[in-house]
Write a protein that binds this DNA or RNA. Sequence first.
DNA 1: TCTGGATATTTTAAGTTTAAAATAACTCGA
DNA 2: TCGAGTTATTTTAAACTTAAAATATCCAGA
Lengths: 169, 169
Amino acid sequence: MNEHVIPLDAEAHAVERPEDHHDDLRLWLRLLTCTTLIEGEIRRRLRDSFDVTLPRFDLMAQLDKAPDGLTLSELSKRMMVSNGNVTGLVERLVESGHLVRETSKTDRRAQVIRLTPLGRAEFRAMAEEHEGWIAEMFCELTPREREDLMRLLAKTKMSTRRAIEGARP
Amino acid sequence: MNEHVIPLDAEAHAVERPEDHHDDLRLWLRLLTCTTLIEGEIRRRLRDSFDVTLPRFDLMAQLDKAPDGLTLSELSKRMMVSNGNVTGLVERLVESGHLVRETSKTDRRAQVIRLTPLGRAEFRAMAEEHEGWIAEMFCELTPREREDLMRLLAKTKMSTRRAIEGARP
DNA sequence: TCTGGATATTTTAAGTTTAAAATAACTCGA
DNA sequence: TCGAGTTATTTTAAACTTAAAATATCCAGA
């Protein structure tokens, strides 16, 4: 008897006390763990296989997608890091012969950054390996699951952007 | 005419050339973007509201969950950062009166780290706000979507762990 | 007991990262 | 043209982060 009685706190997942956001916190921690795990492994493999750091790889990836080059501001916006950070990264990559910088013809404040042929060649070689590594990380997800995850992350991104917008308009 | 002809590369999503992992790469970049967005905003709010850095908050969060304290190794494993990193963070948090460290009674190599009453009080105050901020970021997702995302991230985590295990046993 | 290997932590050097202040150049309206 | 406000970049100081080497301690077996 009584096996059909619905307890007051049935469906624990749906219980919502005011201000009870533990599940969201767990969701965030899991998101963070996934990213940290993948990022750490990619960092390790880039170092072991190509002796390059992840920030440098990321910066070159942005430039590879922009054949006409990018300004430092544009780079820092796309990489979501500070301006000063990009200044230092570019400095070291110019030093090592992977990038060139020239003053914009239309705006003397702006520097246009480009990959050198060496930089592009090295990046392309790394990128091919890198893409395989990433596929490896997701290999246990079905195509359907990957689509779902993509969609849910897109929604999370939009939700977060609006939360940020709302807080600092 | 011909509008019903199915082109050779119909259903772009299903087209799978050998070694074509662009979708996985996009999935990874989206995951990274979400994490970076949220992390950046949390960092900003912690600074503005409590004048604390994110790494310090994260470290205190680990200790708050472990009433008996943790060793530096245990901390670095849980935070997924290097040992040396934790050494420095703990040093500064002891300096500011938020942590205490004592040598383990059973292993003279190990330091047990604990929150001080001050550290715990300050952390609890921050954590309450923090939880609300996180909920804000996810607020446009339905409960069902949050569950799905949680599940998919769990699967991603497992998939990644095995990829890492497989590469360096 | 002694010793080799494992574990816990610290140190070191180099690089990354941020926030904030400083510098320089642009824009646009009075 | 002048000047206020904006934008692009650099500089600065402090903190964070990693990988690798160095120390110190533990542990298990000969």
